[in-house]
């Protein structure tokens, strides 16, 4: 959904920058807090960022001045909170603009608002709702990734529709969503399954990190521990 350099008129560039900056600022404060309290989270945070970078680099051309690709923002948002992703998306988008000619510097505000603000917030929301209705972790992370991906595209279509409301905003919006859907439906489903696989792996290998981040409950983590660990069982039968 990266809007290409020079595509938006300058006043829309400024507008989206202004909307995104408060979230980015909050995200920076959150990162500062995480780094202070749990420095062991740093590699996971950076890998989540690298994941977003790689996922969103695999693009196919789509609607005018934009592209269709997985976003990968659901996973990080569920782990670290939505605004952390808003902040982390800034260097990612700068990378992509400079290294891959994908997106742009002037449209960075708009791209960050869709991929780093609306997408992650909706992903976290979906995760919480799913958990509330008693869904398992697999289902919940699937929904989070799926919603995160789709809301990113809904926002991107809104941004494009607002910049070029021809003939009307609604008509332009519907047109773009239809074109996005052709490529985005299979992509988002594949991405969501991939996220489930990765989440499952993290839950098996380092459940302690997820407990610290309050993503999963401690008793669920220990259940996984028992399945996986090679250590002797904790309850040693009494010797007679």
């Amino acid at each position: 959904m990266h809007i290409a350099e020079g595509f938006l008129p300058w006043y829309w560039c400024v507008f989206w920058y202004a909307l995104a900056i408060p979230f980015i600022y909050h995200g920076v404060l959150q990162i500062r807090k995480i780094r202070k309290e749990h420095p062991e989270m740093t590699p996971l945070l950076a890998v989540c960022g690298a994941f977003i970078f790689i996922m969103s680099s695999l693009h196919v051309p789509s609607v005018t001045g934009s592209s269709s690709h997985p976003t990968g923002n659901g996973l990080g948002a569920v782990f670290f909170g939505a605004t952390v992703i808003s902040a982390i998306c800034v260097p990612i988008l700068v990378f992509q603009a400079l290294v891959l000619a994908h997106g742009g510097i002037t449209t960075l505000g708009a791209n960050d608002f869709s991929m780093g603000v609306v997408g992650p917030f909706c992903a976290v929301f979906a995760w919480k709702i799913a958990k509330k209705f008693g869904a398992g972790y697999g289902v919940a992370i699937f929904l989070a990734a799926f919603v995160g991906d789709w809301m990113t595209y809904v926002t991107a279509a809104t941004e494009l529709g607002m910049a070029f409301p021809v003939p009307t905003f609604a008509a332009a919006w519907v047109k773009m969503m239809i074109i996005y859907s052709y490529t985005q439906i299979p992509i988002s489903i594949a991405e969501s399954f991939l996220t489930v696989i990765i989440f499952d792996y993290i839950m098996r290998s380092r459940p302690d990190l997820l407990v610290t981040l309050k993503v999963i409950k401690a008793e669920d983590a220990s259940r996984y521990d028992d399945e996986e660990s090679d250590e002797p069982p904790k309850k040693v039968p009494e010797a007679n």
Partner: peptide, 16 residues
């Protein structure tokens, strides 16, 4: 540019 974010950025750059 905030130092923490730059730190993560450098790690991310390496991880890519």
């Amino acid at each position: 540019f905030p130092e923490e974010l730059l730190e993560i950025t450098m790690l991310m750059y390496r991880y890519v």
